[in-house]
Design a protein around this nucleic acid. Structure first.
Lengths: 267, 267
DNA sequence: CGTCTGGTTGATACGACTCAAATTTGGTGG
DNA sequence: CCACCAAATTTGAGTCGTATCAACCAGACG
């Protein structure tokens, strides 16, 4: 029996519960595994101001970081200042589970909103994974999914055009938020500026703006005041050529289908 | 004492020695670790024809694969046929060390040249890493570097222009080949077509061609008959904004510097 | 010796960028 | 609660990097 039960018992999403929800979206875990994880996470918690670095390229990595609340991103920049967002971290996401093997960070991580961060020391991490193979496997699986997402982004930046990239990003984030229970009535909080979306998709914010307008004009999405509503999931998925297999979720997201999929809301 | 000794004793690079060389470029290992690894690799060896799939999206992953000889690539395609190469595998590279945790491959792997492939079963892999923590760590480190490379590609596709992307790819491959002893006099074998380079960099082969001509015209590189010579490493590195930190090599590659770096060969 | 794949060249088209300015939004302090 | 400011969004006009399309050429190979 895994611990979906504890999840639904809990109120809003306080403390590290998104973290457990996240792991459960990938692999079944026993209640004791969940508690072991939560306990490790709770030992060292930090608050990070919005729009500040959590760790920077060149730093010596000291701990495994888990986003408990808020949004963060991984980014890297070129010497002349061009900046690329490499990943978004939503509640429950692990920044890097084995970083401490490296001498030096090769990228930076920054908070987008105010972030509550759980930190697990290398020792605590090792002990935790020794105590539960299931937990260790779930964390390893999470790592695999993180890389799979990175690959999907590589594919998108290389082959998708502006509209497809933006649409794909929205699909992915929606699916990931849904997996941790942060989507209600097809709506979710999306604290990204168009500049953020641009530096994740390799586009200028001006162009992102025009693309978003197109998606709105076609009645596919609504995106205002940091809230995203997907009105026509199938249309968005089709525009993005979104195939959620790479997320390896146990449960298929609502925004799903490239394959033969009926339009959810008729045009 | 690690086993640089065995390496230099060995002749050309037969069997799985590139594999050991590769790990040694990332972490020091004892002779017994190297042998343990080689032994695991030697148990199941396959020959793959050039330009055929080694494994395909949707397959069930069965084993950890290591390229012993030849070149391969990881790729993914969109439903309409657009194809993106996500990674190149050169001798010694592991395709994926924990894939078997996944139910389903989310990308494909193909041979570029004829490939000699070592396969390690999940069981053998687990046993091997249990027997040597050092080996396990080296393999984990290798995994981290693979992801770091993926991130650098993401950065490049999002922010670098055509010339910078091609130059960066050449820098990276040169550095990686150098690390496993496959560069002699600044020269290495590079069996990629301009089409391959294009689908890795998100460019058309036509444009890759023009970019390569520019690099040749400026006397920076020579690339003919599948051989690459870098005449002006510093100029190439500068053009690419190549900073090899992300490769986490124990020894800095010759093609290295973005930072204040004297021109190796005067223009 | 013809065929095929990969490389090269030229002309043209278009998607996304740049620059610039106007407008809206959200936060802050009076 | 309103005035103000900074940040984010929106709009328009013009440019440029890379794609597209179309030949042509060279070497590899059966």
């Amino acid at each position: 029996m895994h611990c979906t039960a504890i999840m639904s018992d809990l109120p809003e999403n306080p403390g590290g519960h998104a973290a457990v929800h996240k792991l459960l979206s990938l692999a079944p875990l026993r209640e004791e595994d969940c508690h072991l994880y939560l306990e490790a996470l709770g030992r060292r918690v930090r608050q990070i101001t919005a729009r500040t670095d959590i760790t920077h390229e060149g730093d010596n990595p000291r701990a495994v970081r888990v986003v408990l609340e808020g949004w963060a991103c991984r980014y890297k920049e070129l010497p002349d200042g061009r900046r690329q967002i490499l990943a978004f971290f939503v509640p429950g996401d692990l920044c890097d589970s084995a970083v401490f093997l490296l001498d030096q960070m090769d990228h930076s991580i920054a908070a987008i909103t105010p972030v509550t961060l759980g930190e697990i020391t290398p020792d605590a991490f090792a002990q935790m994974t020794r105590e539960s193979t299931e937990l260790a496997d779930a964390l390893a699986l999470n790592e695999l999914v993180t890389v799979a997402i990175q690959r999907e982004w590589t594919l998108g930046l290389g082959q998708r055009n502006a509209l497809e990239r933006v649409a794909h990003l929205l699909c992915e984030l929606h699916a990931r938020l849904e997996a941790i229970g942060l989507v209600k009535d097809g709506q979710c909080h999306l604290p990204l500026t168009q500049i953020d979306i641009g530096s994740a998709t390799g586009l200028t914010s001006v162009h992102v703006n025009r693309v978003l307008q197109e998606l709105r004009r076609d009645g596919i999405i609504e995106l205002t005041r940091r809230r995203l509503t997907i009105h026509r999931p199938a249309a968005l998925g089709r525009a993005a050529m979104f195939d959620p297999v790479y997320l390896h979720l146990r449960q298929l997201p609502r925004v799903a289908a490239v394959r033969p999929a009926p339009e959810a809301f008729a045009p």
